[in-house]
């Protein structure tokens, strides 16, 4: 199938993109790797597409003392290949390397993936799990950037906190503290397919961050409360998940519990972060 008609423009700047969003008929597109199949199937019919993959502000990567700010149009492959700094050592690189296929990673972007918010997408859980923040710019010309914690940014299946005229400009990924550990485990039957279940664990004592995140739930990732009780073994993954995601069908609940068990096994042997 071929897409329905749409207009098209390449935005050269953030303000270009922002003015195109006024009126709510147009849609931003970066790599087109998630939107493209939907366009071809005529499942989505934006009046116009605005290509933001070359907007300089969205391509920039800034290193700050405690975090790195990734422009939304940085590709998965750039992260995978280490062309941009990885604040987490290699955690982001490893996650990027297992997104879909190389040809998709060459065009797909971190911001595009998060704004699309497919519940089974890697960045959706990994960014939530790493306590990343979404950087959002509103429509008003003088609007200041807002930062939104990722767990609040992703609000449901294909749903985000972005307003109709907002742009996700960047993602801030905090640098882990000395000795931090991380594990991310997803179950895919086949390379590159959407995960059936996934779990991520961050233990970052220096920054007082301990987080267990469950992904591929058909909606936004779930954060497990009191993760320490799982890490110290006083609660089993199944017990924790029966409370955290009780409405999942039995098989899904089971697979997520396994994903969490596997992530727990991995974190035991995970290398400690050192800057």
């Amino acid at each position: 199938m071929k897409p329905a008609l749409f207009d098209f423009a390449v935005a050269q700047s953030l303000s270009d993109a922002q003015s195109a969003l006024l009126g709510g008929q147009n849609k931003l597109v970066s790599g087109n790797q998630s939107l493209g199949p939907m366009l071809n199937l005529r499942l989505t019919r934006p009046a116009g597409l605005v290509d933001i993959s070359r907007v300089p502000e969205l391509r920039a990567v800034e290193e700050h003392e405690n975090y790195v700010r990734f422009g939304a149009a940085v590709t998965h492959a750039e992260i995978e290949d280490g062309e941009v700094p990885d604040p987490t050592g290699h955690w982001m690189r490893n996650a990027a390397a297992n997104i879909a296929y190389r040809a998709v990673r060459n065009r797909g972007t971190i911001g595009g993936s998060l704004a699309h918010a497919d519940p089974a997408a890697d960045w959706v859980i990994v960014m939530t799990g790493l306590c990343a923040m979404a950087v959002v710019k509103g429509a008003a010309p003088d609007a200041t950037l807002r930062t939104i914690p990722m767990e609040e940014f992703i609000t449901g299946p294909y749903s985000t906190a972005l307003g109709p005229e907002d742009i996700l400009t960047a993602i801030d990924v905090p640098k882990p503290g000395q000795g931090a550990r991380w594990s991310y485990w997803k179950y895919t039957r086949q390379v590159g397919e959407f995960a059936k279940a996934s779990a991520a664990i961050l233990i970052d004592p220096a920054n007082n961050r301990t987080r267990i995140t469950i992904g591929a739930l058909g909606r936004q990732p779930a954060l497990i409360s009191n993760p320490e009780t799982i890490l110290d073994g006083s609660k089993s993954p199944m017990e924790a998940l029966s409370v955290a995601i009780p409405d999942q069908p039995a098989t899904a609940l089971h697979l997520h519990a396994v994903a969490l068990s596997r992530a727990l096994e991995q974190i035991k042997v995970a290398k400690e972060f050192s800057a």
Partner: peptide, 14 residues
């Protein structure tokens, strides 16, 4: 950064 027009987007013909 360059300043340039975003092209003729905005019509809803699609």
């Amino acid at each position: 950064t360059e300043k340039s027009a975003a092209g003729s987007i905005g019509t809803a013909s699609g």
